[in-house]
Design a binder for these strands. Structure first.
Lengths: 186, 186
DNA sequence: TCTAGTTTTTGACAAATGTCAAAAGTAATT
DNA sequence: AATTACTTTTGACATTTGTCAAAAACTAGA
């Protein structure tokens, strides 16, 4: 069975009919390190469940990469703004470690939402969680020194430090790589 | 009719039955400037629709206020984290201009979500929009100089500059009031 | 209109962080 | 093992921003 389905079933209540229909709509995608799942300018037509590997969402300003978020196992990833509004994505999604994903088409998700109340509810709850997570990250980023940002990361998301190169982490925190390197030296 | 209801009806599709039930559950709240809608430590049991006035969500670190967000007419406001998880709020909600709000109890919202699919959908869509908005704000805050932050605000949310005192705006942007004052002088 | 309270501005200085450039370290390939 | 490419660290210095304190401007109430 897809890891996505067991993940959903162990965290939410969902009927067999919904599960089976969902299963039919999922397409497996395998990508290698440094592939791109999404490119800037592209309209994002799928929601992805990340089964294995890790990715980062970043956008490009004056030739400089700015990492917005990281995705790991059991995360839903996509360029949310593009996926929701069906407008061109401002961000890239870059595969940092070889990845296995399951893609769900926007149209087909809409069908699921229409036909299965429990999926509508599931999606609503997932949004709630993602919203809270983002808000928390935002709060943590505000009015903090570079050292505090690093200590926060160490405390709240240590897996990022273990699996992501320094340059990406620095831009995720909004500080220069050199500063991060010096902080870590201590 | 409540402004909330006409707001919803003009933006979403919603049955009469749902509208009427929702209407029953709404309680009007009137607050004055400098009242608090939510205090830190309090579990937030209501979702509020802001009909008139404006508010800010802030939290306190070492005696210093840090403004997280502003709410204006037609916004849904609450301490989302607390409301969703039913744990004590980390933030205060402070009334900046005399306000009229409509409160919806969490329990009663849950009933609505259970009984009316279109409300479940409505809430899901509202979360999508709030999520995107937050993500956008986050992207704008990252890797920007104080001047760029100010110019961004001027472009994207000029109403904030018109209606909020400088100190709140500075902490919203994550810069000191003095710096913001100097930037604005130019 | 005057007064008291609040908010905003200004100045001087200190501290934190960014930038650029080079060196050191690490990993991947032949 | 040697070469190449990529990532991380280090140093020197410039710039931005924060902090503290005081003055100025603005607001609301008596």
């Amino acid at each position: 069975m897809h890891q996505l389905l067991s993940y959903i079933q162990s965290n939410y209540t969902i009927s067999n009919a919904a599960t089976q229909t969902l299963q039919q709509f999922l397409n497996k995608i395998v990508l290698c390190k440094n592939d791109f799942l999404i490119n800037e300018g592209q309209v994002c037509k799928h929601l992805y469940f990340l089964e294995k590997g890790c990715v980062r969402g970043f956008y490009n300003v004056d030739g400089k990469d700015i990492t917005q978020w990281f995705g790991f196992e059991n995360d839903f990833v996509t360029s949310f703004r593009s996926f929701i509004t069906q407008t061109p994505s401002a961000e890239y999604i870059h595969v940092v470690e070889d990845a296995v994903l399951w893609a769900l088409d926007k149209e087909q998700l809409n069908n699921l939402l229409k036909n299965f109340t429990e999926i509508e509810k599931l999606v609503r709850i997932i949004y709630e969680q993602y919203y809270i997570r983002l808000e928390e990250r935002y709060a943590n980023a505000h009015f903090k020194t570079a050292t505090e940002l690093y200590e926060n990361l160490l405390q709240n998301e240590p897996h990022i430090l273990q699996r992501m190169p320094l340059g990406y982490i620095a831009s995720y925190l909004g500080i220069s790589q050199e500063t991060l390197s010096r902080i870590r030296a201590k």
